[in-house]
């Protein structure tokens, strides 16, 4: 898949670059590529969230954090062998775990035969939402989504308060 190759290239760039400003920009581009991949995988809602959070909000937050630190990343002081080993082992474990996963789009897996089919049948007459994922998110799991929104909103308020306080103390000097 071309998009995944591009994403991998962008990630390599993010790891290699020492200029954090460029890294922020590249991670924004990565989010848009990820959103495209999610759209191709037919998960439009997740893609929308990825674009909103990854490309929109987190770019702004990263820049705000960059304001508090230096633009250039310091060279690593220790050898990367142990983290590399941990990452390779965990990656191998994840690949090993994904071997047992069913084929993409297989209709006869437990995921698609137990609960999911019931929702597929019931969602449009019960909720009137065309997209089943949207109906689950906004209707069947409405309170859960509301709780998530409250959490994110609270986090946003916290970040705003922190940044505001920093600005005021700076203007006093």
């Amino acid at each position: 898949m071309v998009l995944l190759t591009l994403m991998a290239l962008v990630v390599i760039g993010v790891v290699r670059l020492r200029n954090l400003f460029a890294v922020v920009i590249l991670s924004s581009a990565y989010s848009f590529l990820m959103a495209s991949v999610l759209i191709v995988l037919d998960a439009v809602d997740v893609a929308m969230t990825e674009a909103a959070v990854g490309a929109g909000v987190s770019t702004v937050l990263m820049l705000a954090a960059l304001y508090l630190t230096k633009v250039e990343e310091a060279a690593p002081r220790h050898t990367p062998l142990l983290p590399m080993f941990v990452a390779v082992v965990i990656g191998a474990a994840l690949v090993y775990g994904s071997v047992d996963m069913p084929n993409f789009g297989d209709a006869f897996t437990p995921v698609n035969t137990h609960v999911g089919s019931g929702y597929l049948v019931r969602s449009i007459p019960e909720t009137g939402v065309d997209n089943v994922v949207s109906s689950v998110l906004a209707s069947y799991r409405g309170y859960d989504t509301l709780g998530e929104t409250v959490v994110v909103f609270t986090a946003g308020i916290g970040v705003l308060l922190l940044l505001r306080r920093n600005k005021r103390s700076r203007s006093k000097d």
Binding site: L6, L9, N19, F21, A22, I25, A29
Partner: peptide
């Protein structure tokens, strides 16, 4: 065109090259 924009974003010598490339990737998306 997305691939070309990614190449420019990775290679771009200045920040502005990368930013325009990131914007182009957004448009490509």
């Amino acid at each position: 065109s997305l691939g070309l924009a990614v190449i420019r974003a990775l290679a771009g010598p200045t920040v502005f090259d990368r930013m325009v490339a990131a914007n182009t990737i957004g448009n490509g998306a």
